[in-house]
Each structure stands twice: as C-alpha cells, then as structure tokens.
Amino acid sequence: MPADALGRGVRRLGAGTINAVVRIGYAARFFVAILTHSPQSILRVGLTTREIYFAGVLSLVIILLSGLFVGMVLALQGFDVLEKYGAGDSLGVFVALSLVRELGPVVAGLLFASRAGSAITAEIGLMKTTDQLAAMEMMAVDPLSRIVAPRFWGGVISMPLLAALFSVMGVFGAYIVGVRLIGADSGTFWGNMRAGVGFWPDITNGIIKSCVFGVAVCLIAVFEGYTAKPTAEGVATATTRTVVIGSLAILALDFVLTVFMFRGMGAK
C-alpha cells in the first residue's frame, strides 16, 4: 500500500520533529538549570579544577600534536598554491588567518567533542546507570550542582585554551615546514603575519568562536549523559550522540558565527 507507507513516513517525520523540538526545549531548560546550579562549582574551586584536568590537561597531547600536523600541512599546501601566484610571502598570513579564524577553534572543537565530550557523557551516563546520581539525590546533594555544573564549567574553561594552543602549535608547524624546510624567508613569514592578522577582530573572533563551541559541546555532553537511558546500551548511544551532535553543532555554529563576523568586518 503506497498510500499507507506514505502516511507512515509522514507520521514518522512528524514524530521525529516533535521529539527533536521537545529535546531542544529540554536542553535549553537544562542549560538554565546548570547556570542556576553553578555557584557551588565556582565557590568550591577544587570541583571545577578536577574537571579542567580531565577535559583540558588530558586533551593536551592530542590537541598539540594535531595542531602541529595541521600547521605543517597548511604550510606545504599553502606555499605551493601561493607561490604559483607569486604570493609566497603571504604564507605566514595565510597560515595564521586559517588557524586563528577557522581551523583552531573548529578542529580543536571537533577533537574536544570526541575526546573530552564523549568522556563526560560516558561518565555521567554511567553514574546514572549505577544509581550514583540517585544516591546523591537521596543524600540531599543535588547532582546538578555537584556533578553536572563542574563538568560543564571545566570543559567551557578548557576549550578556548585548547583552541589557542592548537593555533600556536599550527603556526609553529608552519614555521618549521615553511621556513626551515621549504626555505621561505623567516622575517617575511613573521612580518607579514603580524601585518595581516589583527588582534581585533581576527584573534578575538577566534577566541569568541572557541568559547561558543565550548559551551555547545559541554552542554550537549552533560545533557546526553544526564538524559541517557540507564543501560549499557543507552550510555553507548548517548556517547555516540555527543560526538555526532557535538561535531555537527560546531560546524553549523561556525558557519553562523562566520557569517555574522564577516559581515561585521565588511561593514567597517
């Protein structure tokens, strides 16, 4: 029955849409709840410090290495193309702008979502599955203040720092390849970079982007963990969802933010 199948398809689409809207609304309320439950994670610094360790320090190696390699590839590819148009001098600008505006926040964000975001989701999901959150609630301790908010803030603080480190490593990688190996001039590399990259708006925009990505990924991570089905399978699904939705959110937000920032720069 094609009409029947069509009806079923439409119904499924409708149900999916309603479910998605409900979840987004729930996530927004969850965000507000995290903010109102945040004072404890600010007052008791140790709680948040611990989460910065797990989200930030443990992500350092992957972020630094990735930054280095991305920078080195950028230098190779960029130099090849730029030199064809006689613009090899602009290698520094090209690499620095790519990293600071786009690749730093975006790639660091994607790595952060899969490294730290998934860990946060799995941890909270597992605590829910093993009744640890319920046990806390029964002890008159609010898991939102004690578990969720510190993890959220730990990630939000780590993200911009990781993105900045990624960009710096990328610039170093490009310097090693571009100047040391290919033989671009060191003075032109740094000089043109400084001439072409502005603290305001290029670097500040990159920092704003990484902050927004940090909030988005951490919210998704704690939300998926907190609302995970309390089974082994449920936690696995939630962890996957964090990586998938987190990555998509970063790319979509990057587009939206770039549109606004680019427009802002054009109007100047």
Binding site: L161, A164, L165, R194, V197, F199, I203, G206
Partner: peptide, 12 residues
C-alpha cells in the same frame, strides 16, 4: 598561547 597569538601572530 593567547598572549603569543596577540603579540607575535597578531599586531597588538
């Protein structure tokens, strides 16, 4: 890293 970006990479 942020300071490096501001001073060495950018033109602050």
């Amino acid at each position: 890293a942020v300071v490096f970006l501001a001073l060495r990479v950018g033109n602050l």
